Computed example of a mutant assay.
Amino acid sequence: MDKKEFHRQKGEVERSEAKHKALKLKSSLFPGGSTVYDAFTALVQPLYEKRKDEWLYLLMYDLVRREKEGVISLEALSKNDEFVTIVTKAIILAQQNHQKEKLEALRNIVLNSTEWLSKGEPIFDWGHKFLMIVDQISPLHILLLKTFQNPAKAIQEKKARFEERTGFNNADVFFKLHPELKSRSALAKQCWRELYNFGFVGTDKFFEMKDAEDMKYMHTHDQFVPQTTDFGNKFLNMIEYSK
Rank of each mutant, 00 (worst) to 15 (best):
F6W: 05
F200S: 03
F162Q: 08
G127A: 13
L93R: 06
E157H: 09
F162A: 07
V110G: 03
I133D: 03
D172Y: 02
L106W: 03
R65K: 15
S183V: 10
K243E: 14
S27E: 14
G70Y: 10
F175L: 11
K68M: 06
I92L: 07
N233T: 03
S78L: 11
G11E: 12
T166W: 07
C191K: 10
S34Q: 09
L63I: 13
G11L: 09
K4H: 08
E104L: 13
N112W: 07
Q190G: 08
F206T: 02
G202W: 07
K52F: 05
H141Y: 04
T147S: 08
M215Q: 15
H221V: 00
E163P: 02
A171Y: 03
D204E: 15
Q95T: 02
K3C: 07
S113N: 04
E67A: 09
F174H: 00
F30R: 02
H178A: 06
Y57G: 12
R161Y: 13
L145T: 04
S138D: 06
P122I: 03
P179G: 13
E121L: 13
F231L: 15
K21N: 12
V44K: 01
H98C: 02
F83I: 05
A90G: 05
N97M: 11
L43A: 10
E163D: 14
D214W: 01
Y48W: 11
V225Q: 12
A188H: 10
F235L: 05
H178G: 03
K189A: 14
N169I: 01
A76M: 09
N112P: 01
L187M: 09
K129A: 10
N169Y: 08
L144Q: 10
V64K: 15
L117R: 03
L43Y: 08
Q156G: 01
W126Q: 10
S183R: 12
E49S: 05
D81G: 04
I137G: 05
N170I: 04
E14G: 00
V84D: 06
F40L: 15
L236I: 03
L144C: 07
T88E: 04
M209F: 06
Q95V: 00
Y37N: 07
E121V: 06
K100L: 12
K68W: 04
I92A: 14
N108A: 11
Q190L: 13
K129R: 14
A22H: 10
